[in-house]
């Protein structure tokens, strides 16, 4: 996927003005943070061969929860903790349903999507919750070296998550479960616990993404996260993490998310309307996903030959 990212950047820097200026690169990075953070959690879920469609609505719900506490008790720390708790709580609930019952994850998370978004819209009366303190907004604007704190934090999270995936027992279990559930079970992996944990992690990161998005938008609305679902799943898929589970990494996800970030930035610089951007993004994600499928389709044949 890295070559594709390079090609995209070369093409866009030739066709547009100012793509590779330092201010625009910081721009791309800070516009990608919310999707990037949520995509960490989504990567773990997809690595187990699952899917979480509720990510967008959890971003909205936890953002609203956090903003509500921040505006009502005037404590940013309490608001952030509450948002993370809401995200993780929903994640655990979804994870338990997926792990304990013989139902498809997509049905559970699709139902979860609407229950969560309906619930949070209802509780917030469909309003945007604002204003949040200036210091909190600064988190996604200011930072060392002109790069926002939110971007630095995201970079740190990717390093930690990659280490958690490759260097910890939990990460190994996630990969093994995704590659071959039977083998994982025989080797004593508690399937239910690992499955629950990846959805809980996805909920936690969605909660954090909700906090960062609230800081970016200087307020929170229940529906603010829903358009992000395709970019989150698309970033993971574009990066080359297999939808069948077992193969993938956070590094790939980072590349996929950056690809979408540069694509959307470049299309805006080219003056494409939002609906045209939607078309191009959808088509590219489909193309990338088919590439992954084609490889899998060809491989077993060459293996048996």
């Amino acid at each position: 996927m890295l070559p594709a990212l390079v090609v995209l950047i070369v093409v866009l820097s030739v066709t547009t003005d100012g793509l590779l200026t330092s201010s625009n690169i910081v721009n791309v990075l800070s516009q990608s943070t919310v999707v990037a953070i949520a995509a960490i959690g989504a990567t773990f879920v997809i690595l187990t061969g699952g899917i979480d469609l509720s990510i967008g609505s959890v971003i909205g719900a936890s953002g609203v929860a956090g903003a509500w506490l921040i505006t009502s008790v005037h404590s940013v720390a309490a608001g952030i903790v509450f948002a993370l708790l809401v995200g993780a709580g929903i994640g655990v609930a979804v994870g338990l349903l997926v792990a304990k019952l013989p139902v498809v994850p997509f049905a559970v998370t699709l139902a979860g999507l609407y229950v969560v978004s309906g619930g949070s819209t209802l509780l917030s009366h469909g309003r945007t919750i604002a204003p949040v303190p200036a210091g909190f907004i600064n988190f996604s604007i200011d930072g060392p070296g002109g790069v926002p704190y939110a971007v630095w934090m995201t970079l740190g999270l990717y390093v930690i998550a990659q280490i958690a995936l490759t260097r910890t027992a939990w990460g190994r279990r996630v990969l093994l479960l995704g590659a071959k559930e039977e083998v994982a079970r025989i080797n004593g992996v508690s399937i239910g616990r690992v499955k629950t944990s990846v959805y809980a992690v996805a909920g936690l990161f969605s909660g954090l993404a909700g906090v960062v998005l609230t800081s970016e938008l200087a307020g929170a609305g229940a529906s603010m996260g829903s358009p992000l679902l395709l970019n989150v799943v698309g970033g993971v898929v574009l990066g080359g993490t297999s939808l069948f589970g077992g193969r993938g990494s956070l590094l790939r996800t980072a590349i996929g998310v950056l690809f979408l970030g540069f694509l959307s930035n470049g299309m805006s610089l080219l003056g494409l309307a939002s609906y045209d951007q939607q078309m191009v993004t959808g088509a590219l994600i489909l193309l990338a996903a088919s590439a992954d499928g084609l490889v899998r389709w060809v491989r077993p044949r060459t293996a048996t030959a």
Partner: peptide
């Protein structure tokens, strides 16, 4: 391609809505 139908149609969801827009 044998891409899961879920992902295919999640992508075409965007393509069709974009085209309609």
């Amino acid at each position: 391609t044998r891409v899961p139908a879920l992902v295919v149609t999640l992508a075409t969801l965007q393509v069709f809505r974009g085209a309609g827009g």
